[in-house]
Every structure is written in structure tokens, then in C-alpha cells.
Nucleic acid binder design. Structure first.
Lengths: 213, 213
DNA sequence: GTCTATACATCGATAGAC
DNA sequence: GTCTATCGATGTATAGAC
């Protein structure tokens, strides 16, 4: 009756290396859709077409599978940040590249990002045994480093490194938030570039010397 | 034995208009701390020093008390937005005032904002019967109106109304997020002003004609 | 309006066979 | 490694007295 009977002539279930992967995918899908606390282990295992003890074997608890999801997400995220931090060009080009990397990665992993977001801004009690601050810290550190380089090169305004860092991370955050919210319309890559242009060049009209003065 | 015995000579419990208010405060506190789904009705009523049927009398369910919290929050939020939208001055002054209003209101109601945030970005299934988009819609509409006025007056750059709107709401969002996150350090009013300065004036250094050219 | 007591479902996690 | 069967705790919500 179990799904694995089909491939086993003797009717036995050979160890399935796929079970862990299916459990992870199913957990992300259900955590994203219903929220971690509202998700029951029964839903996860049914969606993954395995039984309950299989989950408790591969991960030791319901929290264990959440931590595994966050760890994999953090790994990919840090790789993307490191790639972007090593880019070359002007500070503006490098910051745009960093934002593109982060935004692109988020768009390709919306369900995982939603789960991580819910945990990051979620309840202070019942938190998983996982350091959630890596995301924010690595990203802000990379942004600040590029900005400091740009200030040193005379490309960016001096004296506002901290405020500029916050402005750049604000752009990434607003694009991400709109992407993962079920209520908003996505900003898109063009929108990201447009908003970054605003932040780099400012909102105020330049009062060039003209005939109408 | 019940708390109300103290004020009732005959030992009876007079109808207590305070019960509803205590239930609301307690629910906000526990929803914020543990998350809506992970909160049990028992915890709320214990914290409010009432019994379970009292909650089901004043609100009809666990979801009912969440909706009541969100409705009260939306009411205060819309009042603050309307106040700021009616302000006078340059577009920059009015946008700064709007951001101050929103940020100030959030800072004074961090627990409620955290609950609303968790619901807004929370699971798509099991949503309360409440239109969460009012927050975003009213705020963005107010921002866009001020920006359009500023463009018409020649104060702001033409052609990027949408991107400028996103940039301003990004500043509000990043300040709010840092305020409600248990992991970040608050931006503060000075920080808000600094980031807004960056967005209005741009990050790029102005290359004024100088002796070193 | 507020209480005590409880119905009834579902939860996370495990025991023990294979 | 994966199964069936089940434990004990806890969940929301209500019935009925006062």
C-alpha cells in the first residue's frame, strides 16, 4: 500500500534518500501557507507522502525541520552576499549589483523567505534554536563596506555612512516585503533600479540656472 | 475569591465594563509575545483575570478578539495619516511630517504593530476577517498625493512619482521594522531625519567646480 | 454577565514490530 | 529506516447554573 512498494519486488521499502528532501519541500510549503505554529506534523508528512516517525527520524522534532530550512536558506543567502561584495566598479554599480543579487535570490525563493521573515519578526517566545541575525548582519556589513569605499573615493557624500546604509537596506527591504506580501504588487527589477536611482540622485529637483529665473 | 468581590458588599459580581478592555490589553500582550496561533484562550483570560466564557461573550471567538485589536489599530492609524496629509508647507516638509506621524504612532504602539505586522505578512490560510490592506493603501495614497503636489510645484523631480513614493514608504518601513524586530537597534527620530535627508538630496557627492579639478 | 465543569478534536511525540 | 498504533497533554468552544 505504501508508495515505495512499486519499486521493490519483495514488497519491502528500501531506504529512500529522497524522503528527507521531500519532507523539507513539504514543510516549506505548509509553513509558508499556514504558518509554523498552525502547521501540524500530520499535514507535513501527508504532503510529503511519508509517515510521522520518518519525520522524527530525519529531523528530531517539528522545530528541527524548521531549523534545517533556515540553515539552508542562510547558506544560499550568504553565498549571494559574498559574491556581490566581491564585485568591481563604482560604489553605485556595486550597490546596485548587491541589491540585484539579494532581490533576485529572494524572488527565486519566496516561500523560504516568507518563512524566514515570519520567524524573524515573529514571536519572541518559542523561537527556534537558530541565529536569525546572520541575514541582517551580513547584508548590512556588505552595504556599509561598499559605501565606505565610495566615500573614500569621493564618489559618495561623506558624513552619512550610517544613514546611507539604512537607505540602501530600506530599498532591499521594501522590494522584498512587496514580493512576499500577498496583498502588494511586486516592484520588479525595473522598479528596483528606479528606486535606487532616486536614492542615489535624490528627490529634489535640481535648480539649474535657466532663462526662467 | 474573584477579584470583584472586594467592591461588592453582597459578594455578587456587578457587570464589569472593564472586562472587555482588560481582555483586549491581555490579548495584545500575549499575541505579541507568543504569536496568534500559538496563543491559547486560557492564557489570555488568565492574564486578564477573567474566565473563558467572558471572552466568548464579549468577542465571539479567539479570532474575534484579534479582529477587534486590528480594527482599533486601523482607526488610530488612519487618523494619524489624515492629520499628516492635511499639513502645510513644502512637499519635503509635509513628507517629513507624515513620516514622523507614522513612525511616532508605531513607536507608541509597538505591540499592536507587531501583531498587525505578523498578520499582514503572515500565513495566507487562517486569515482573520479583516481587510489588512487599509494600512498600506492609505499610507501610499497620502505619500503619492504629496509627491504629486511637489512635482507640480517644481520642487521634486518629475517623471519618478512612483519610484519616489516607494522610496519614502521604504524609509517608513525600515524604521518600523527595526523598531518591532527584537534583533535590531531602533533608528530613532534623528535617524529617520538623517535617512530622509539622504533620500531627498541623494547619496552621490556633488562635484562642485573646485581648485582640484 | 459571569461562573464551574466538561465535551470533543487534535496536537507532538513515541513504543515496538519488521 | 519505515511502518501501525497509541499515549498523554492541550486546544477551542459550550452547556447550564446563578
Amino acid at each position: 500500500m505504501a508508495w515505495c512498494d512499486a519499486g521493490a519486488p519483495d514488497g519491502s521499502c528500501a531506504p529512500d534518500p529522497d524522503v528527507r528532501e521531500r519532507l523539507l519541500r513539504a514543510a516549506v510549503e505548509v509553513f509558508d501557507r499556514k504558518g509554523y505554529a498552525a502547521t501540524s506534523v500530520r499535514e507535513i508528512v501527508e504532503h510529503a507522502r511519508v509517515t510521522k516517525p520518518a519525520l522524527y527520524y530525519h529531523f528530531k522534532s517539528k522545530e528541527g525541520i524548521l531549523v534545517a530550512i533556515l540553515e539552508e536558506g542562510a547558506r544560499q543567502f550568504q553565498e549571494a552576499i559574498a559574491r556581490a561584495a566581491a564585485s568591481k566598479g563604482t560604489a553605485r554599480q556595486r550597490l546596485v549589483a548587491l541589491c540585484e543579487q539579494a532581490y533576485g535570490l529572494f524572488r527565486q525563493n519566496v516561500p523560504v523567505v516568507r518563512v524566514a521573515h515570519a520567524v524573524y519578526y515573529g514571536p519572541r517566545e518559542g523561537l527556534p534554536a537558530f541565529d536569525l541575525t546572520v541575514f541582517e548582519r551580513k547584508l548590512v556589513a556588505a552595504i556599509r563596506q561598499i559605501i565606505q569605499d565610495g566615500v573614500a573615493a569621493g564618489e559618495l557624500q561623506p558624513g552619512s555612512v550610517e544613514h546611507m546604509s539604512i537607505a540602501i537596506s530600506a530599498v532591499i527591504a521594501v522590494c522584498t516585503d512587496q514580493e512576499i506580501s500577498p496583498h502588494s504588487t511586486p516592484v520588479g527589477l525595473d522598479g528596483l533600479h528606479g528606486v535606487l536611482d532616486v536614492v542615489f540622485e535624490g528627490m529634489l529637483a535640481r535648480h539649474l540656472p535657466g532663462p526662467e529665473s
